[in-house]
């Protein structure tokens, strides 16, 4: 009987791991960026200190803020925790993983996005609505591209459930289809756009002409802001974990969870996260922020690359069949 609860224990542990590591990962990217740009880096724990400071402060709430505005940070955080519960980052034997496939995860991200946009419109400031509008725009442009990436995965392994994908990828390492490379490039582009990174948005600026994410959270303060920031670092963490599950799944404990497998998986995860963080920092250091109306071109490019991957797969498949 006790054995039945073991998967739930791993499940719980994985969620806690994600929630705890997400600020660290964001800090790691910031540190890499600082190194690459020849600046002295803030300590890795900077994000945690900021969260602690924010939780201590008193909330300053705009007079006309409604209940929706105060609830939204909690909902955002909760959706991101749910995504973390579904994404197999350490083990695949997760009870909640069957609650959603990759396409349902897109929906979950959309829920978070809509709540954030609505909350941004609640106070009725010019920046809030501006940010909401831009965020929704980036969102609807990114969705077709990310869907094509998952389509590609489905064509390869006949599943959109992340756990099955991880199982299949890791047990068939020889199947390196050229379409995977296209899909990976498209996925990284969407990841940058969806997580308010350069070249679509700059997380480190409050310049009114360019900001998207920051414009939406301008009015938040103290614990609300802390939750919003935590949720957005968790979102980045989740996106990277989904990317790892899709494109670098080796090391994840696929044959049930025993202690050694988990330790290996944890080590693999930290190496992969460190690598991905460095790559993201490199991309961000090498590229410039795009004008807001270049964002459609950027995401259309991501979409086309993903479609190209699909076509490559279908054409190659037609060849081998014939």
């Amino acid at each position: 009987m006790a054995l039945k609860f073991v998967p739930f224990m791993w499940q719980f542990g994985e969620v806690i791991l994600a929630v705890a590591l997400a600020p660290l990962f964001a800090g790691w990217i910031g540190q890499c960026r600082a190194w690459m740009q020849n600046r002295s880096a803030p300590p890795l724990t900077q994000q945690y200190r900021m969260l602690r400071k924010l939780f201590k402060k008193d909330v300053a709430l705009a007079e006309n803020a409604s209940r929706l505005y105060r609830t939204a940070p909690y909902v955002l955080f909760a959706t991101m925790v749910l995504v973390a519960a579904i994404t197999p980052s350490v083990v695949t034997d997760l009870p909640f993983a069957h609650a959603a496939d990759a396409i349902a995860l897109i929906g979950l991200f959309a829920t978070a996005r809509v709540f954030q946009a609505l909350a941004a419109m609640d106070i009725g400031t010019s920046f809030g609505t501006l940010g909401a509008r831009r965020e929704m725009m980036v969102g609807f442009l990114a969705e077709p591209a990310i869907l094509m990436v998952f389509f590609n995965a489905f064509l390869l392994f006949d599943s959109t459930a992340l756990t099955s994908l991880v199982d299949n990828y890791s047990t068939h390492p020889s199947v390196i289809d050229p379409s995977v490379i296209f899909a990976a490039i498209a996925f990284v582009m969407v990841l940058l756009a969806e997580n308010a990174r350069i070249p679509i948005d700059n997380p480190a600026t409050h310049l009114e002409l360019t900001m998207i994410h920051e414009a939406m959270v301008l009015e938040y303060s103290a614990r609300h802001l802390a939750l919003v920031e935590w949720a957005s670092s968790l979102k980045l963490f989740n996106y990277v974990c989904i990317g790892i599950a899709l494109f670098l799944p080796w090391g994840i404990a696929i044959h049930g969870a025993n202690l050694i497998a988990i330790l290996i998986a944890l080590a693999a995860l930290s190496v992969k996260l460190a690598f991905c963080g460095a790559v993201l920092a490199l991309i961000e250091s090498l590229s410039a922020k795009l004008r807001i109306f270049r964002a459609p071109e950027f995401l259309a490019m991501a979409f086309l690359i993903a479609v190209l991957g699909l076509l490559v797969h279908l054409l190659l498949g037609a060849n081998t069949n014939a």
């Binding site: 939780f55 201590k56 008193d58 909330v59 300053a60 709430l61 705009a62 007079e63 006309n64 419109m121 106070i123 009725g124 400031t125 010019s126 920046f127 809030g128 609505t129 501006l130 909401a132 509008r133 409050h206 009114e208 301008l218 009015e219 614990r223």
Partner: peptide, 24 residues
Amino acid sequence: AHGRMRRTAAWDCGYRWQTSRMQD
């Protein structure tokens, strides 16, 4: 932590007055 909260005017990057016409 705590549940302290106070109501103030909206910040909006420190612009002094805002009207409803400044929304989208």
